[in-house]
């Protein structure tokens, strides 16, 4: 039986009238990289805050390493928030010393490990620079270094790569996954490509509950082979209905003037598309089915749900 790092059963959390989590259930195997995917406001950050004992659940059960979330568990957990937490008045190394002490890292270990991690994440030469002088990408890397400093058994990453470019993102993930061997990683993101690349398992969340979960491969397996993204000049319901009626059309999702259709053979579908909706097509892009398509199938089926 797989050992679980996180187990949530029927968790509910309200902020006044708004329901952030609504019957949220999830199991995260120990040592896995698990992606929580959903649109903004779907409850990802709230769930992470609960795991870090920073928010209580109104009802339901949450277990982290078999226990209810508690401050005492936080020595074994590190959280990277959407926002930077580094104090701009400190230097990079001061910030790491400060954070390390709060997590009980011995002084000698702090120096050695801090230096190693800074080098690994390309921040070694900036160790004595003020945090305020770092670029956005460097600050995000510093957040990850800070999180890894006390050798956590679980990393809670809340959109850790928001606002950084592709190269920075690639460096960050390469080093993070290399340095976090055996650590359970829970990644909350709305970047489906990122989750597809790094996660062993993912769960799609919508309106505060898990819609579906599994490995990216399993979620994509049920899809048709190809995905056709159609830019429309005429996005009326009639046009979309005509596209849906084309033989060979699998799942169809609409987001304003874009329609995504899955199909087994785009080469026969596309000519039929131009016949079915003449003058209504602005652009057509064909791609192999991705996690984004799986997301569209499960979460945004036929225009439901918000932007991922």
């Amino acid at each position: 039986m797989t050992e679980l790092a996180i187990r949530a059963v029927d968790v509910t959390r309200r902020y006044g009238e708004r329901v952030a989590l609504n019957g949220f259930s999830l199991e995260v195997p120990r040592g896995s990289v698990f992606g929580l995917l959903g649109p903004n406001g779907s409850g990802k950050s709230t769930f992470i805050a609960m795991l870090a004992a920073m928010q209580p659940a109104d009802s339901g059960t949450i277990e982290v390493f078999g226990q209810a979330p508690a401050r005492t568990l936080l020595r074994r957990i590190a959280t990277v928030f959407q926002e930077n937490t580094a104090d701009p008045l400190m230097s990079v190394s001061e910030y790491l010393r400060f954070s390390g002490r709060l997590f009980g890292v011995p002084a000698a270990d702090l120096r050695v490990r801090g230096f190693e991690l800074l080098e690994k994440f390309g921040l070694g030469p900036r160790a004595n620079d003020p945090v305020s002088g770092l670029s956005g990408g460097m600050r995000r890397r510093l957040e990850v270094v800070r999180a890894l400093l006390h050798r956590p058994e679980m990393l809670l990453l809340d959109e850790p790569t928001t606002g950084i470019d592709a190269e920075e993102r690639s460096i960050l993930w390469r080093e993070l996954l290399d340095g976090a061997g055996g650590t359970t990683v829970l990644l909350a993101t709305n970047d489906l490509g990122e989750a597809d690349a790094v996660c062993d398992n993912v769960a799609f969340i919508q309106n505060g509950r898990v819609v579906v979960s599994g490995t990216p491969a399993a979620l994509k397996a049920g899809l048709r082979r190809e995905s056709v993204r159609i830019g429309l000049t005429d996005n009326t319901a009639e046009t979309v209905a005509r596209i849906a009626a084309i033989p060979g059309t699998g799942e169809l999702a609409q987001d304003d003037d874009t329609v995504i259709v899955t199909t087994d053979d785009a080469s026969t579908f596309v000519p039929r598309l131009f016949e079915a909706a003449p003058g209504a097509i602005r652009s057509v892009t064909i791609a192999t089915a991705s996690l984004e398509d799986a997301y569209f199938q499960h979460v945004r089926r036929r225009g439901e749900g918000g932007a991922p």
Binding site: M54, I77, F81, T85, A86, D87, L102, F103
Partner: peptide
């Protein structure tokens, strides 16, 4: 953001 970090400590 520092307050958030403080609240995530043990």
């Amino acid at each position: 953001g520092l307050l958030r970090l403080l609240l995530s400590t043990p």
